[in-house]
Design a protein around this nucleic acid. Structure first.
Lengths: 340, 340
DNA sequence: AGAGTTGCTGCAATCGAGTGCAGCATCCGC
DNA sequence: GCGGATGCTGCACTCGATTGCAGCAACTCT
């Protein structure tokens, strides 16, 4: 037996399909007699009627789907965000279409084209590059979207970002309170917005707290990866600079530092303390467990979805952006500096 | 300007919409004059025409989407599988709709209902429970689906499963070759199919290799989690049984063992060796790095998608199932037993 | 030359739901 | 008792693409 259609319901209730349509739609229900509406609804219930979203979408040009554009689902950063998004989308009757871009602009364009041809009503974009002509263009074309994890430059688009600056301040303050004064920073790629904003916030925090603001204590990596992080720390170590603590651009970079500690027999946190950023899963299983800054990923996703739904409902509403607070998670990789 | 429709293309090419439709569809292109077809295609290209999948779906009752049902996207096990799935779906013009069930049967039913009302053409299901009346029912109702990670009992549905038995054998053999003879097994929940199959394979491997097959060396956990794994090992330790190696039901359980090692000051691998299962990300960052069995997650996803597409294309085709080989990843958590 | 093919194209219906407009009955006020 | 408002329902068309069938021209065969 095929799924019952609106017509089946209408027939069974003894009314015209148009009436059934109105009775079933809360927004137009007022147009039909209350008794009739009740009858139609009961019949629909009995028949197990489910409106066909494809047919509905054809007429209303609403697909009930939004596109979720992320660089790589395999990166543990994103699944919680996705869950947060879906947690909000789902009760609203929307579904998310997830695509991976692998941070490749060509692929990204292709994927977004694909999403648009699937008639998504909006886009949640979580890519990292600073330069983003595609976003400007989409925005010009009237595509409703929300950015996650990065503030768009020169594009008037709502965004949800963790308050990186505050998080960095938290990390540096923690180190300062333990007594560290010479803190190094292994920063992420300066081609990413988080990379630059964290590095900037690091310098600011160091100055604010009256620590040694030495440019030689900052190095940048080629990518957000363990190997790049390890390279960064090696450079710092080989430069001969003195420091007793490291603030890593993110957890993967911190993990790279662990590799270097191991390969050079450096005691952590005895000799050098490390703070990461992101609070990836399983960090507490490391030796030592990594102290880091936790980001409310799920909440970020949820906020993003809410903003997007708002924007879909009223595209003319001005772009609103939210900054989410972060928190410090103290574990075993930080300790007071050795007294020389 | 709104997106160009088929009619726009037809008009611009000076033909009827029906002809344009046929010209654009490779399957029906033979019905139209080759020159006309070329012209239509060129015009479509120039106008940037993208067929509207909603409209198409309405007529063909094909949505071009498949449902991907997983317990929890946050579990690092699943993202690679999802990537593998999408890697196959995408070139075929399909999209995946991902839903999380949280292993809650009610939620699962709700989610699957939701997917079906979205007209998915098939389902890739990656849940873990052995008992699964819902699956039987869906299968009876003619829903095309493929199971991942578990073999359905009494349901004639294609499935992709890692060859658990072979993987377990690999792990136990590795331990045996190092010289261990009394190997314990902290098994996963016996309410899950992988839990029972791994436990069964463990006993078989132990017997085959001529090791001590002592039921007291096997304990089962309440869930696939670190804390449950820790509880399991504590029980084993407190029972007073002697053993020099542990085969953990999965990596999380192994991680729980690490916690117990730490809390009781047990040296690993000096005093006790451990082998995990799954090869989660970042296991190489642990101290000691965990020896484990790697599962070709991405390949599993890809195979599942291929099987599903086959089944969609020809629903009458008999259920085919594939068993994927696993591999041993030797890291630092295994060593020869101490000589007493 | 007339009948029958073949090859291509257009007409019109269809999928399932949504919606402007017209029609009809009822009821109100004067 | 009549004009007009009000409330509800049905008709018919629309969204964009697909497809069975009919139509028509050119060509083949006898």
């Amino acid at each position: 037996m095929p799924a019952p259609t609106l017509r089946d319901v209408a027939e069974a209730a003894g009314v015209h399909a148009a009436t059934a349509s109105r009775a079933l739609n809360p927004a137009t229900r007022g147009l039909v007699n209350a008794d009739t509406a009740r009858r139609v609804m009961k019949v629909a219930e009995q028949l197990g009627y489910r409106p066909n979203p494809i047919a509905r979408g054809l007429k209303t040009s609403k697909s009930g789907t939004v596109g979720i554009v992320i660089p790589d689902l395999t990166n543990p950063l994103f699944p919680p965000i996705v869950r947060g998004i879906e947690g909000v989308l789902e009760p609203a009757g929307y579904s998310g279409l997830i695509v991976n871009t692998d941070n490749d602009p060509g692929r990204e364009k292709w994927q977004i084209d694909h999403l648009r041809s699937r008639q998504v009503e909006g886009l949640i974009v979580a890519t990292a590059r600073v330069e983003h002509p595609l976003m400007r263009q989409l925005h010009r074309e009237g595509v409703v979207m929300v950015m996650v994890n990065r503030r768009p430059e020169g594009v008037d688009v709502p965004s949800i970002t963790p308050d990186d600056a505050a998080g960095v301040e938290l990390a540096v303050r923690h180190l300062a309170e333990l007594g560290h004064t010479r803190i190094a920073h292994v920063a992420g790629p300066q081609s990413t917005s988080t990379g630059v904003s964290r590095a900037r916030a690091f310098r600011a925090a160091v100055r604010d707290l009256g620590l040694d603001d030495d440019p030689a204590l900052v190095t940048t990596t080629a990518s957000w990866s363990e190997s790049a992080g390890a390279d960064g720390l090696r450079r710092l170590l080989d430069s001969g600079e003195e420091f007793t603590a490291i603030f890593a651009g993110n957890d993967l970079i911190a993990l790279g530092c662990y590799d270097v500690f191991f390969e050079r027999g450096i005691d952590c946190p005895g000799r050098i303390s490390v703070v990461g950023f992101n609070d990836m899963p399983f960090l507490d299983k490391l030796r030592p467990p990594l102290t880091t800054i936790a980001i409310p990923h799920q909440q970020i996703g949820a906020e993003a979805a809410r903003l997007l739904l708002d924007a879909i409902a009223d595209p003319s509403r001005p772009a609103r952006s939210v900054l989410l607070p972060l928190s410090l998670v103290v574990r075993g990789s930080t300790a007071p500096p050795v007294v020389l």
